[in-house]
Design a protein around this nucleic acid. Structure first.
Lengths: 216, 216
DNA sequence: CGTTGTGAAGAGCTTCACAGCG
DNA sequence: CGCTGTGAAGCTCTTCACAACG
């Protein structure tokens, strides 16, 4: 457990993205009391392809039983373990605007094993207040506090013009993973991973598809 | 203007996603007063590849000047026009929890031409109240109101277990584009486009990369 | 001359088809 | 027998390399 392992050297980024979809499907199946599932059934539920699913899973190991399928519970454990998410991950959040507050109260975050262990802002009116049992700390204290909080992930939910400065604090704090909700590209060293939650690009994609559909 | 056009038949989904990154870079350049940019310079700013950028742009037309580069202002106009986002898009929002409130107050949404024209919830305590000048309507009124509000996009910001029911209301209302913030896959007809804002999968991706880096 | 636009090559991802195995 | 795991084929996307051209 909590040991990332793989059969293959390189795993396609697309595979990683699909695994979370599979996890969701499996959670639903488990809730319905279904214990075994075939790649064909999962394909139907995920609008993917059965071979794709088998190949995705095979990157990490042989989890299925030939002639039968996959045990739902075991497969969930295998996927979470493969992704390294079968343990608690501690994160610090910076930016206590509406988005930050939404994250502090979001139920899915702790439900998936992610724990926000510190909340930071630069606004003196917010520093020292409490939101949903989180005390808001001064962003200047981030580098010191990350270590004692034992956090590994930094979440940025500030306005775009503050995002790079916050990222610098996070680098200084020794964080190697950043989840960025601000619509601003970040400049970081190669050993720091940044994931962008960019709902504007999803809006653009929708507009484009709708526009295209209309001229067809 | 507001006329989507393309040189090629099929445009890679990856290209569409990158265009919003290019737009952001161009907006920054414009703010700095820079008027002309080369694909090489844009590649440096976007951590992409110069050929990639030229090819992405060439799907839609010939926007550059050989020996010189691209005019920043013209290119922004060309991209927004190509994506069909050089006009106002009207959206309805369902789910007035913390995430919904964050969206109602998010400055980037109107700044990019998206206007939330209606906010809905099913909670009687919320219906009839006002948030940031938006009156909250009963979700049951969505199908009727979408037409008079002239909305084209539906945004779902409810808990996961409500998302599919909300999607049904949106289908009934005749919406063809859905932006889904709930962590739940939706079942919709083929002529309805759904984009998923799934920050959990970004968290998973971070955990995986950090875990991998540690065992290397 | 410098940079675009683009065919061709290369890399990466998906799907097929079937051997392997419970 | 049925379904997985996987080489090979097929397809899509990315990168290269250079002709085209302002």
């Amino acid at each position: 457990m909590s040991q990332v392992s793989q059969k293959s050297q390189h795993i396609p980024r697309a595979t990683i993205e699909r695994l979370s979809v599979y996890l969701e499907i499996l959670a639903n199946l488990k809730a319905e009391g279904i214990e075994v599932v075939s790649s064909e059934q999962m394909a139907a539920a995920s609008k993917s392809n059965a071979s794709q699913i088998r190949k995705d899973l095979a990157y990490f190991g042989e989890f299925g039983v030939r002639g039968m399928g996959y045990y739902v519970k075991d497969l969930m454990q295998s996927i979470t373990s493969s992704l390294g998410i079968d343990r608690e991950w501690r994160a610090v959040l910076v930016g206590i605007g509406n988005m930050g507050r939404a994250l502090l109260t979001h139920k899915a975050i702790p439900a998936r094993g992610y724990r926000i262990v510190g909340a930071f802002d630069s606004d003196p009116n917010k520093i020292g207040t409490r939101i949903n049992n989180f005390e808001i700390y001064d962003i200047a204290r981030l580098p010191d506090m990350v270590h004692e909080l034992n956090a590994e992930i930094g979440v940025i939910a500030t306005p775009p013009d503050k995002a790079q400065a916050v990222a610098e604090y996070m680098l200084q704090a020794g964080l190697h993973g950043i989840l960025n909700f601000a619509s601003m590209r970040l400049t970081v060293p190669a050993d720091v991973y940044v994931e962008y939650v960019d709902f504007l690009h999803h809006l653009y994609a929708l507009s484009f598809k709708i526009s295209l559909a209309k001229i067809r």
